[in-house]
Design a protein around this nucleic acid. Sequence first.
RNA 1: GGAGAGAUGGCUGAGCGGUUGAAAGCACCGGUCUUGAAAACCGGCAAAGGGGCAACUCUUUCCUGGGUUCGAAUCCCAGUCUCUCCGCCA
Length: 419
Amino acid sequence: MHNLKEIRKDFEAFKKAIQKRITDVDFTKLKTLDEQNRQAIQEKEKLEQQKKDISKSKDKDLFEKSKSISSSIDKISDDQKKIKLELDSILSNIPNIPHPDVPEGHTEKDNIEISKTGQIPNFDFKPKSHYELGEKLGMLNFDLATKTTGARFVFVRDKLAHLERALSNFMLDTHILNNGYEEVSPPLLASENTMFGTGQLPKFENDQFEIKTEEKTGRKFLIPTAEVILTNMVKEQIIDKKKLPYRFVASTPCFRKEAGSYGKDTKGMIRQHQFYKVELVSVVEQNKCQDELERMTNCATNILDQLKLPYRKVILCTGDMGFSAEKTYDIEVWLPSENRYREISSCSSCSTFQAVRMKCRYKNEKKEMEFVGTLNGSGLAIGRTLIAILENNQQKDGSIIVPKVLRPYMNNLEKISSN
RNA sequence: GGAGAGAUGGCUGAGCGGUUGAAAGCACCGGUCUUGAAAACCGGCAAAGGGGCAACUCUUUCCUGGGUUCGAAUCCCAGUCUCUCCGCCA
């Protein structure tokens, strides 16, 4: 969320920056409401002061007057609250401002490739898709999941289930031991306010799975990514600057409705309602966001390097970025069956956008309150990594070579083949 | 599920109708002292919002929402959360 005070300083510049991303914001209304809001506050404060003076004077003759002032205050205050509510609802639906580095564009076609790493495998046979391979091995079962649960779920079984767990452990260990992240095992449900903090609500409610709960305790949602719960670990806090940066890593299931992607990636486990992901989250001083983003992205690509999977790094254009992001690198892994790169990690700096929503601050050198910067990235999406290993490491007979770094996690198993 | 206790500043913790935005301690920052550091001493130190170029100033805030009162951190009602004990279940 944007700080109104900052917007006010240069309204036109704000408008221009936002219009790079979306255009359906009613800027005139925003401005008018802000002015009305401030005017109401001023009126209210004037009356409050009068009332305070009367109360201090303890002059009985003025008590009646104070009562009538009270009712005026109530009225103005009600109006002001309504204005503020409307103001906040406009504000909370405006995305983050893109960083100057971000290329302008509308779709993923306008993203810009930054680098390519690794060797694309050369097969002397027609490479199969991950779901063909998995089903043939008897270790991926989509039909069974449809029967027990519904579309876009999968049973991963036997060696592939083990591989999935090995991936999670390997990634966690790497980030904890080599990259300085603290391991976290978080709740998988988040409150409405927590979802608001990272920007999933109010605008993207349709993508979230909501859990039925007792009334009164508030709405609860299954986390669509651990970013939500890890980032909100610092919500409503004033952090001691010395403790920054915070770096958290968690491996969790993620739940997404994938509304609006009907008919897209319906085959296989590219796009599921539930998937595992190892998530990295950093909380930093606001001027360190860019450095941290590079660092985080390197942590993610390092996993692919170790797994010897070919990938490319892309910077997302303004139109393809997420709501809360100011700048995003996507890491895309090579998928032989599709003959193209597919997203396996997305690393974003959210500048202070989420911090304002979460109310997370620290004191800078000048002892001024500043909002922290938050970043998140996948390191990596487990399901898609599994897919990439299946497809890139497949043999003519349909068996799969286990990457060397994973073997210690799999009882030194070198190859996965049907029993 | 039953019975109690509580929620105050970054933290601990007093206050229980009228300069209380809130004692005290810790932490933190600045200074004196010291070769340096520590200790000791002195001083400072809440946030949000409004007004002002600024120095500064005003308003709000003691879990949340109502109520009583000229006036509420303090009294009343409702709710949320936390803790302790008992029961139940992992």
